[in-house]
Design a protein around this nucleic acid. Structure first.
Lengths: 171, 171
DNA sequence: CCTCATTTGTTTAACTTTCAATGAGGCTGG
DNA sequence: CCAGCCTCATTGAAAGTTAAACAAATGAGG
């Protein structure tokens, strides 16, 4: 059996080539700048960070504009803890409301309020425009397609199924 | 002259097509998962978030392992304020030390200490491995190349020259 | 019915990031 | 010189995030 290669075990590291390094740096820089840019845009215009906006979007797209906390967390790729705090804040803004789940007394729904829906309606155009300017307007159709494929692959590799990733023999 | 289209002015929004939306979602998901994954890996192994690690890397690659605060901030794509706090923390860890700039009394150098260098040496292999597993091992050479090109373009569009971006007529 | 492991969601404290304000130093033109 | 403006870097408070611990409810198995 080959060594586990995920624990504290020193095989000689496979360094990145110069070209790989350039790619990686470009990725980090662009991702950092982009996140920052969108956060600022939404904070300025809509009064919330990008992640929070994303939560509202998830909700508006869901049946009855509601989602169980855990579902919402999974779909937004954040922890339940982070979501708890976020929803608390959005609730204070009046954009989301919590509702008990009838079938599971532990459960909570996050529900998009009319106000929340309105905020979304009002600021979606500006946000889409920002995304276009920063990303889509600059890429050829081919590049857009590639970006989609590439990011899907990366996400795939890190997805929840990731849970037991360093114990592959248990999956 | 065409309208400025960046201010509070409602032209009918150019929504994203379904395909564009899929691309964008993939991007957001992958970027979120990846950032989170690397933060966790480094926090667990090296006791610092990914950004902080990135700062040490910038320093180790610089002449005399030092950089002016502003330079470092620019090169890492973060604000000077954020850097100030970060360096304060790294200093507390003994991984970075501040030094006055002789030629400009306002200036400060962030200098990588030997301890800092050692931390980097110790944890670089694990980090590279994490990046490989999450990204490079999953992409074809063609995709790696595309990713580099695409992210360079996006970064380009958001770069510092961005400062007066909504006042293009002043540039 | 009871026990125990698991799931759900929240909470607390520590840490990080942002935003706005500040002070010190440099630089330019009168 | 010095007045006004810009740059360098830091600060403190508020907001957001993380990690670990927790209570309540569920549900599977005995």
């Amino acid at each position: 059996m080959k060594t586990a290669s995920g624990s504290a075990h020193a095989e000689e590291p496979r360094w990145l080539t110069d070209e790989e390094q350039r790619v990686w740096r470009s990725y980090i820089e662009a991702a950092t700048l982009l996140e920052d840019h969108l956060d600022r845009q939404l904070q300025r215009d809509a009064g919330m960070p990008h992640v929070y906006y994303g939560l509202l979007v998830k909700l508006v797209e869901s049946p009855r504009r509601r989602l169980r906390m855990t579902e919402l967390a999974k779909s937004a790729k954040i922890t339940r803890s982070r979501l708890s705090h976020a929803v608390a804040r959005l609730e204070k803004n009046g954009w989301v409301r919590r509702e008990d789940c009838p079938s599971d007394k532990r459960g909570q729904f996050a529900v998009l309020t009319d106000e929340g829906h309105e905020v979304l309606r009002r600021h979606a155009p500006g946000h889409v425009e920002a995304v276009r300017q920063a990303v889509f307007d600059r890429l050829t159709p081919q590049q857009q397609k590639s970006l989609g494929e590439i990011m899907r692959i990366i996400a795939e590799g890190l997805e929840p199924s990731e849970a037991g990733a360093d114990l592959p023999w248990l999956r």
